[in-house]
Amino acid sequence: MPEAVSLLYQFGTNAAFLLLSALGLIVILGMMNIINLAHGEFMMLGAYAATASVQRGVPFPLAVLIAAVAVGLFGVVIERLIVRRFYGRELGALVVTWGISLILGQGALLLFGPFMPPIAIPGGAVALGDYSFSVYWLFLIVLCGVLLAALAFVYRATRFGLQARAAMQNARMARALGIRVDRIYMATFALGAALAGLSGALLAPTTSIAPFMGQQFVAPAFITVVVGGGASVIGGALGSSGLLSLVQTPVAFLFGTFSGTLALLLTALVVIRLLPGGVSSIGRYFTRRSLAAAR
């Protein structure tokens, strides 16, 4: 019994890590068809902002919020100055955001030095049999659910969500209807950046904080996005992180961390071979069917 719980816990933490790593990326891709290669560096900035706040005596939860807001604002600046010139040129956007990531990584090293003091993991642990579980990770798993629900609410029930979905499906039509697509894109990019900052801050206590820490998120985040596909933000994020964790958890348990990550890449190759649109394309297929049936 405790073994089963332990395995479930491992599965949950892996899925939560993948989901948090990829969430901001998926939001930007799904809504704007732009891949933000500086995503890992945005997460790094979030971790730095949270750490700097904690050092100045700010309580950790507040520090996380500060990080999200700060990186979100930074995202607005980047979007206005650079990214908005690359709408509709997906490869150009990839390359230019890579340039940004190089500047941010090295820039953080120059500005803040190679070391940042770590943040202690809040919350301690609970024990079950011989196993102990980190309360913080349990909290993160729950928080992932809350974040997805909040995103679903934003997209389904708010004016912004409606306009964003309209802009995603047909930008020209949305423009003709008087939606300020430009603003929607800016807000979406800011939301994606804020989520990256939030994730970076939330994961900061679990990892060492360094200028090039963003790199460790690149492989898991991008594989999660590829497997998820761009068709549906929430379905893609949830399906992809769940599926990948299902593969990664046993492989990493038996053969070590690297094999776990390699298994992620192999899973991604197999998934795109079978479903070029990612797992979210299944969801979209069913949604369309049910919509059509309801008509």
Partner: peptide
């Protein structure tokens, strides 16, 4: 698999990093 254009750079990057 005839994937979308952005997937090729992403997956090749992941290959290099791994």
């Amino acid at each position: 698999a005839r994937v979308a254009a952005w997937i090729v750079p992403i997956l090749t990057l992941v290959l290099a990093l791994l």
